[in-house]
């Protein structure tokens, strides 16, 4: 439903402040570790599209690395979803080539690691 506005050209006054071209060539990517609820929210990182998917564990470490589970992660067994769909990423290929776009949400599950004392913390 459109906005009810007092002017006909409402859109001229209301620019989009969140378009990919405003990010100096980066993608704003969200990275979320399932079942580790002690982290308040998914992390956000500005990444150039040629970033190899295999760099994401290092990106994740900057925030999630403080968790005792993090160093136990076997990245070959991690299950990934991209914007809600399961994916099997190629770590050597870039995120841009594998469908990651501006504000994509990448979630990863680490089987066997269910947070501090298995309590999803």
């Amino acid at each position: 439903m459109p906005v009810k506005a007092i002017v006909d050209n409402y859109k001229d006054f209301n620019p989009n402040r969140d378009l990919p071209e405003q990010y100096h060539g980066n993608l704003m990517v969200y990275l979320y570790w399932n079942k580790h609820m002690s982290f308040v929210a998914a992390m956000a990182a500005p990444l150039p599209p040629p970033t190899p998917f295999g760099a994401l564990p290092e990106v994740a470490k900057s925030v999630y690395g403080t968790h005792p589970d993090f160093e136990k992660i076997d990245w070959s067994k991690v299950e990934w979803t991209l914007d809600g769909n399961p994916i099997t990423p190629d770590f050597a290929k870039s995120i841009g080539e594998q469908g990651v776009r501006h504000k994509s949400l990448i979630r990863f599950t680490t089987p066997g690691l269910d947070g501090f004392e298995g309590k999803y913390v």
């Binding site: 459109p2 969140d18 704003m28």
Partner: peptide
């Protein structure tokens, strides 16, 4: 049309 122009603080940092 209204909310696309929201000034989101994290987005603004990256911009």
């Amino acid at each position: 049309e209204k909310y696309i122009s929201s000034w989101l603080p994290i987005q603004q940092i990256f911009q």
